[in-house]
Design a protein around this nucleic acid. Structure first.
Lengths: 144, 144
DNA sequence: GCTATTTATTTAACACGTTAAATAGATTGA
DNA sequence: TCAATCTATTTAACGTGTTAAATAAATAGC
């Protein structure tokens, strides 16, 4: 009933799998001086802007306190803009800035190459299947 | 060729899946004042002791600098012991201590219950299949 | 209209992740 | 043998993860 050995446990396997994938992307991000989490925020806002902080936190899977710090860093570097909603003074309005869009464009070819290499090694169908299974796992644990 | 939206990307899905699973175990660990990473070290040494630090780091998927801090914390609390190898003064010899074994025993029933609930929600066969796919992904990216 | 409660964000505190550099013990080779 | 190199671990610095508490603006109820 319990995983017999540490290597065959879901949390550990998920961690190692993530690390195996991220190790391919990390050098690219490091060259552009953005962390993995900063990059997630930029991408989320690149997909849809403006968003409030709560929405960004959820979409990027980043906790609110981390997001506060990340916002400061990204705003200082001109990648995103930060304001308040007129109708609700509590909510922070975030949006991608031109420099942020430029960064996304700039990294796009390299990302494609890394993703293609990943697909070549693991297989397109396998990735899709894995994404489906992960989504089902997430739903099964979060619902009810 | 690139994930169209942030939700269907491998790194993000792996992160969210891990979080969905860990959220079930975290309260248990918190009640016993051990972090996720400290718990991984305890389990690794519970499976096989003694081990040197490098081996523990690898098996628990923890980086060396983090392990240094974790060892201090676990040794202070009497969960593990720490010494040096006679034949190589650089290597640190780590082993589970009685209090560490006792903690493993103490948490065992609750872990079983949580794992059973997870299986009930997601399915035994699905877990096995998912573990296999994750292992294949890891191998595909780390080899060559 | 005012207090109590809720909601969004921030701050604080402490542990880990990550990279680079430092330390110290082993090993190699002239 | 001893300087150069390699290897295992630690330290340092900075960013993020996590929980709890603080702040501040909105909403509910009276």
């Amino acid at each position: 009933m319990l995983p017999h050995n540490t290597r065959r446990s879901l949390p550990m396997s998920l961690l190692r799998a993530r690390e195996a994938v991220m190790s391919k992307f990390r050098p690219m991000l490091a060259r552009h001086d953005v962390t993995e989490q900063q990059w997630r925020v930029i991408r989320v806002l690149g997909e849809s802007s403006p968003l409030d902080a709560t929405e960004v936190a959820e979409r990027a899977s980043i906790l609110a306190p981390s997001l506060t710090r990340i916002i400061k860093a990204l705003e200082d570097r001109g990648f995103i803009t930060r304001g308040k909603f007129e109708d609700d003074g509590r909510r922070v309005q975030l949006a991608i800035a031109p420099a942020g869009m430029a960064l996304i464009e700039e990294l796009s070819p390299e990302r494609r190459a890394i993703y293609a290499e990943l697909e070549a090694r693991y297989g397109h169908a396998e990735i899709e299947k894995l994404l489906d299974m992960l989504e089902a796992l997430i739903k099964s644990q979060n619902d009810g």
